[in-house]
């Protein structure tokens, strides 16, 4: 699977025996940030009568703002910069990785299809939850593991289950994005190999198998664009839910 390989573009330097190199993964992260920055710059003109671009950017900010207001309440306002950057970064990364730039010889790299990247994003969200929780509630934060209305004879079991489900959050958060993107790209690769191999086998195979596969591939591409948006939304949504837990303790 050539498209998932991390390649070194610039050898970089060594720190304690570890090579710190500039890879294609890092290149596409920088590219995502540049595209996102240009996108935001074009829309932050603060015109009284917004143009189309400004409307688009305002739609995105308004969408995240209403999501935070709905899930966290008025305390959610201060997390808007983090959740918004997270959402837009993942969304742009997913969509940039889907671009058919291979036609012009540039192979896009979807860095969200690597667990190292999504794992770090998940740990970032999780540590915000921990820091906010302990900062705001102190040791009272542990009452998160005993929900209201727990019967006394279940007090030995519920905290264990709640603790496990709490600790699993960063894994499930990172894993979901990484696997969804990897699975989508593998699916497209399998379908494209159907098209290429069947066409090479002869005209009858090409018409019988290649063309239906190609039509299916177009449909799956549309589905993958939807998945790219949904996964970014789900990541931001779950982050805001976890922050809500830290803010309000159930």
């Amino acid at each position: 699977m050539h498209q998932f390989e991390v390649q070194t573009l610039w050898d970089g330097f060594n720190i304690g025996g570890h090579q710190i190199a500039f890879t294609n993964s890092a290149l596409w992260m920088c590219l995502t940030v540049v595209v996102l920055w240009l996108f935001m710059l074009g829309g932050m003109k603060r015109q009284v009568i917004p143009g189309r671009w400004q409307m688009l950017v305002e739609n995105f900010t308004g969408f995240i703002d209403s999501m935070l207001a709905q899930n966290i309440g008025k305390e959610g306002k201060k997390y808007l910069p983090y959740v918004f950057s997270l959402f837009m970064f993942i969304l742009f990364a997913n969509i940039l990785g889907m671009l058919p730039l291979a036609i012009v010889g540039v192979h896009p790299f979807t860095f969200t299809s690597h667990f190292t990247v999504t794992g770090v994003l998940a740990i970032l969200s999780f540590s915000i939850v921990l820091i906010v929780g302990f900062w705001k509630h102190g040791l009272h934060f542990f009452s998160l593991f005993v929900p209201h209305g727990t019967p006394w004879w279940l007090i030995w079991l519920i905290p264990v289950i709640e603790f496990v489900s709490f600790m699993v959050r960063p894994f499930s958060l990172g894993l979901r994005l990484f696997v969804a993107m990897t699975a989508g790209h593998v699916l497209l690769e399998v379908l494209s190999s159907f098209v290429i191999n069947s066409s090479n086998a002869g005209a009858i195979y090409g018409i019988g198998i290649g063309i239906p596969s190609f039509v299916l591939m177009i449909a799956i591409c549309a589905l993958e664009l939807l998945v790219a948006a949904i996964q970014a939304y789900v990541f931001a949504l779950l982050t805001s839910l976890y922050i809500n837990d830290a803010e309000h303790l159930h």
């Binding site: 894993l175 979901r176 969804a180 699975a183 949504l237 779950l238």
Partner: peptide, 15 residues
Amino acid sequence: FIGFAAAELLGLLAF
């Protein structure tokens, strides 16, 4: 979408 995410995660685990 919370329900969707929970259901989908288990399928992704199969992958």
